[in-house]
């Protein structure tokens, strides 16, 4: 028992473990590439679900990594406990350090016979931060969920299927394309509803999701979806302009004109029309106000010209829940901050 404790508190073990972990990860980074299909879903699901669903031939190194990191955490806990408890003994009884293989600030200060200063403990606070982050990561790999993307337009309310009683409601949304043709912003006003009541409302953008406790609502994309086309009709009776909405029909001459589909990107678009006579499709044509070749069409003796496409933005959203995320950031912050403080004192030493 005692020798196990000594093993677990040794820095030698720390170094051996770091290099084992590094080696497994290096191997894994190549294994990942040779077996792409198995790893496709790994970032969209909880790690634990993925490991269960994936053959051992692909998942082995991740399982091994988790195992090694587990031993590594034990090492960090035991090591930190060991140093702190020997420190405590030194403080209360003035005892000397025993281990001659290792030389740290703490052992130096002890052997100089001086008291140990609080700032010497900063690396141990860093260790604690690291452990907090690791534990949080573990929590987020077991509980929580990564929701699928869903589409929603203005006014839509979509239930979060992993979270009974909760839903997402979308208000205004839009995308702005810049001069060079690339999207400049994408945003949507989103409310998170729970038990029918609004819990939080926020303008969600790329890089700024709605975050409520451990739930986060993301916007992934906004696209224009064609809703209808403005057509100008001219025949012997004269001219007229009308709007034809997606899926709807109007009487035209001896038959019926119906808008059956359409496509849009950020700037251009085209719509698909069919012409029906006596219940039969007699013509199928694409029409677009943006392209001279497709701007004008003719059915029998009626001329139609495309004037404008009416579109509405539709967003793609997703909801994730990660009970570990905020604690992870806290842990990493403690880790980084105490490191910086430690460095600062080290310099002025």
């Amino acid at each position: 028992m005692k020798s196990l404790y000594r093993q677990l508190s040794s820095i030698k073990l720390t170094i051996v473990l770091t290099y084992l972990i590094v080696s497994v990860t290096v191997t894994g980074s190549f294994a990942l590439l040779s077996n792409k299909e198995d790893f496709e879903a790994i970032d969209e699901s909880l790690l634990i679900d993925w490991v269960w669903a994936t053959p051992l031939s692909s998942a082995w190194w991740i399982i091994l990594l988790v195992l090694l990191v587990f031993i590594f955490s034990l090492n960090t806990i035991v090591c930190t406990f060991d140093r702190l408890s020997s420190l405590f003994k030194v403080w209360s009884k003035g005892r000397k350090a025993e281990n001659d293989e290792e030389e740290t600030l703490v052992t130096q200060e002890i052997s100089r016979g001086k008291g140990v200063r609080i700032r010497t403990l900063l690396p141990y606070i860093a260790h604690a931060g690291f452990l907090i982050a690791l534990a949080a990561h573990l929590t987020g790999s077991i509980w929580g969920f990564r929701g699928d993307d869903f589409a929603a337009a203005q006014g839509d309310e979509v239930e979060i299927k992993e979270l009974a009683g909760f839903s997402v409601k979308v208000g205004d949304l839009d995308m702005v394309v810049g001069k060079r043709g690339y999207p400049e912003t994408m945003w949507g006003d989103v409310s998170l509803l729970g038990g029918g009541k609004e819990i939080k409302r926020q303008r969600v953008e790329i890089n700024s999701p709605l975050i409520y406790k451990d739930i986060a609502v993301y916007i992934k994309n906004v696209q224009s979806v064609p809703k209808g086309i403005v057509l100008k009709k001219s025949d012997k009776e004269g001219e007229g302009t009308f709007l034809l909405a997606q899926g709807e029909s109007v009487h035209l001459g001896s038959g019926e004109l119906r808008l059956v589909g359409g496509r849009m990107d950020s700037r251009y678009g085209a719509m698909e029309l069919i012409f029906i006579e006596k219940g039969k499709i007699v013509e199928k044509r694409w029409i677009s106000p943006y392209n001279q070749r497709f701007k004008l069409i003719k059915f029998r003796d009626i001329h139609l010209s495309a004037e404008d496409i009416k579109s509405a933005p539709v967003g793609s959203f997703s909801v994730n829940r990660d009970p570990g995320a905020r604690i992870l950031f806290l842990g990493l912050f403690i880790f980084a901050a105490s490191l910086v403080a430690h460095l600062f004192f080290r310099r002025s030493k």
Partner: peptide, 17 residues
């Protein structure tokens, strides 16, 4: 640390395999 926060805000995960 900053990479983890950024990935969480932009893509919904703080870690990618």
């Amino acid at each position: 640390f900053s990479g983890a926060i950024w990935a969480y805000l932009a893509w919904g995960n703080y870690w990618f395999w």
